[in-house]
């Protein structure tokens, strides 16, 4: 039972991170029908930025919560700025092109950003400080749940609830949903589509940055390549849940995280990703639009 609980928590933690990154994929896909392969790199860049800021602050003698907040905020801002810039450079000029062109452009951007960080920083793994706060409360529940697991699950839940509220109740959220439904119609009703696309990238990137920060703290080391794997997993999660669907991305992330956790725990630890991909294939064969995807019944 205890082992089961551990695996369950591990899956939940992992799943929450996947979900946070998957949201960026799904939001961009909903609006541009583009698989933004560079999204994982944004998450990687956020982790590097946080590491740099946190290291400098620590050397200045700051500790604890203030380091977390400052490094976190700066990393999120930077990730958002990168997301915004990437869209302007690699995707905006391709608005009218066929669907494959932005995809190749995205792959190019992903290769570019990986090599950019590798060249400007390092190709080695860097130790990442644990920025997550310690407290008596966390110690008291540590028999039940590890402190970083707890923080990751709580933080990502809060962030996802906030995002849902933002999309549901604000004017910007409504405009974003309208654009995802029908871009031309949204344009006719006075929505500035370019602005909406920019904001989608900014929000998605900020979410990825939060995910990157949490997981880097949890795992304790980063390199320029971490974005790629996380990106593929998160994209898988987004598709699993039904791409374009916000609750779908959250659910898909959790399902994927749990599948990996239980698969490695009970079957074999060598095949971690195999479990994720197998679940994806099985679910898509049974439900071709993902768990919560909109039905693809064509209009004729």
């Amino acid at each position: 039972m205890n082992y089961f609980w551990d695996l369950f928590l591990g899956g939940l933690t992992r799943g929450s991170i996947y979900a946070l990154i998957a949201l960026g994929y799904t939001m961009v896909y909903g609006i541009l029908q583009l698989i933004n392969f560079a999204h994982g790199e944004i998450y990687m860049i956020a982790a590097f930025t946080a590491l740099i800021v946190a290291s400098i602050l620590t050397m200045q003698g700051l500790t604890g919560f203030s380091v977390l907040i400052l490094a976190g905020v700066i990393a999120i801002l930077y990730a958002a700025a990168y997301g915004f810039t990437v869209e302007k450079i690699a995707y905006k000029p391709l608005r009218q092109a066929s669907r494959l062109s932005p995809l190749i452009s995205a792959i190019g951007m992903s290769i570019f950003l990986q090599n950019y960080v590798m060249l400007a920083q390092t190709s080695d793994f860097l130790p990442f400080p644990n920025l997550l706060p310690q407290s008596e409360f966390l110690d008291s529940i540590s028999a039940w749940i590890g402190p970083s697991d707890f923080i990751i699950i709580v933080t990502s839940s809060v962030v996802m609830i906030a995002l849902s509220l933002l999309l549901k109740f604000t004017k910007m959220g409504r405009a974003m949903r309208a654009t995802a439904q029908d871009r031309e119609m949204a344009m006719l009703t006075g929505v500035s589509v370019n602005r909406i696309i920019s904001r989608t990238f900014i929000i998605g990137s900020a979410l990825a940055a939060i995910g990157g920060l949490l997981i880097a703290s949890h795992v304790g080391r980063i390199n320029f390549y971490i974005g790629f794997n996380a990106g593929i997993k998160a994209f898988t999660a987004a598709v699993l849940g039904g791409i374009g669907s916000i609750p779908g991305a959250m659910l898909g992330g959790l399902v994927l995280g749990l599948a990996e956790s239980f698969g490695t725990g009970y079957i074999s630890s060598d095949y971690e990703s195999v479990f994720a991909f197998t679940i994806l294939i099985l679910i898509l064969i049974l439900k071709p639009d993902g768990i919560l995807g909109r039905s693809s019944q064509q209009k004729v």
């Binding site: 450079i89 690699a90 000029p93 391709l94 092109a97 062109s101 932005p102 190749i104 452009s105 792959i107 190019g108 951007m109 992903s110 290769i111 570019f112 950003l113 990986q114 090599n115 950019y116 060249l119």
Partner: peptide
């Protein structure tokens, strides 16, 4: 590889 990535973007644009 950095230039290769940039070239892919450039070609598509």
């Amino acid at each position: 590889m950095l230039l290769f990535g940039a070239a892919l973007i450039g070609m598509m644009v």
